[in-house]
């Protein structure tokens, strides 16, 4: 690996043949590792089942799936509370769920139903879970970054040690608004955590064809913001890195930046693997990254230290499957928003 010189490239972090070993659990309790596993699996299974709904033609709204990237949302939200403010992107099922958003509400939203997270008005790309601190996700790339900076302004004025978090992808680093937002957050010492999920692709296009260097954290360094670049498929590593950074951010009231390197198993939108649309993305690359699966690596580590058995794992999968299937059945039967919602929600009542 390169020395920790942030202006250099990601080096081995982007090599799927590296970092595919069972995780170092760093002495976490069985209860904690089991909860991390359960949270990641829940996201994985829900998104797989959403894929089926898309294939069945039940869901038309664009769904950007984050399969393979679950460890980032789960690891970071471990260190957040409902008093913090999290903002997402077009690919935010994982962020919404990791913050504690309801499974049924997510599925109902994807189906455009009134009981959905956004009352059926948003679909997959516009999610809201204010009661758990998930303040909104939108598909305009980079748009929630300055909004999170403003939430951090509010938190600073409230003086209650809350922080704001914005999740975004490597593509957002090519939007000018990231630069403006980093500058503002740094100049004003605002407690906002920038989380770049660097999955190496923006839509179909390889980061190496879009940026002169694949390490997005270099932008944070340019704005004097403490940044770490980590393996985004290591949920324990993500949890630890954000634990340390968030602790400092809360006590010193300042911004932080985490770049988590990962890979999405599906294409930009929908369940297709998109191995035929990019210049580099290939079947062999995808297969290699599937060996660096964040869930598999945690599961293997837990089995090695004998805190998880094959049967208890299968039991967990069964339970989640049952819970999600039940939510889907209920959501398919649920009512759509009334036509009045079209006009009633444009302005305050």
């Amino acid at each position: 690996m390169h020395p920790q010189n942030i202006s250099q490239g990601l080096g081995e972090l982007v090599d799927p043949l590296k970092f595919n070993h069972p995780l170092n659990l760093c002495g976490l309790t069985r209860e904690k590792t089991f909860s991390l596993l359960k949270n990641m699996l829940t996201i994985r299974i829900i998104e797989e089942k959403i894929s089926h709904l898309i294939v069945r033609g039940v869901v038309k709204t664009p769904c950007h799936l984050g399969t393979g990237q679950e460890a980032i949302a789960v690891g970071i939200s471990e260190n957040l509370t409902k008093h913090d403010y999290a903002f997402g992107t077009h690919r935010s099922h994982s962020h919404y769920l990791a913050m504690g958003g309801g499974v049924y509400e997510l599925i109902a939203e994807v189906l455009g139903k009134k009981e959905g997270a956004s009352k059926g008005m948003g679909g997959s790309m516009h999610l809201y879970g204010g009661e758990v601190g998930f303040m909104g996700s939108v598909p305009i790339v980079g748009a929630t970054i300055p909004i999170a900076v403003g939430a951090a302004m509010a938190a600073k004025m409230d003086n209650n040690q809350a922080i704001a978090v914005c999740f975004f992808g490597d593509g957002a680093a090519e939007e000018g608004v990231l630069h403006e937002s980093l500058n503002l957050a740094s100049a004003y010492n605002l407690p906002v955590l920038f989380v770049c999920e660097n999955n190496l692709y923006s839509s179909h296009l390889d980061i190496n064809l879009r940026q002169p260097c694949d390490r997005v954290a270099r932008f944070a360094q340019a704005h004097c913001i403490e940044a770490v670049t980590i393996d985004g498929n290591d949920v324990v590593g993500v949890r630890d890195a954000s634990l340390n950074l968030i602790k400092k951010m809360r006590s010193e009231c300042r911004p932080g930046f985490i770049e988590a390197v990962t890979y999405r198993w599906c294409g930009h939108v929908g369940p297709d693997e998109n191995i035929d649309v990019g210049v580099r993305r290939s079947k062999s690359e995808l297969d290699a990254w599937k060996q660096r699966d964040p869930i598999k690596r945690l599961r293997q580590a837990m089995m090695l230290e004998e805190s998880l058995t094959e049967s208890s794992y299968l039991q967990l999968v069964d339970n989640i499957n049952g819970m999600v299937d039940e939510a889907i059945i209920k959501a398919e039967k649920a009512p759509y928003p009334k036509n009045e919602a079209l006009y009633d929600l444009v302005y305050e009542a």
Binding site: Y85, P146, I147, G150, A151, A154
Partner: peptide, 9 residues
């Protein structure tokens, strides 16, 4: 954007 963010909070 920051003003909008603060207004949401």
């Amino acid at each position: 954007g920051a003003a909008i963010g603060a207004s949401l909070c």
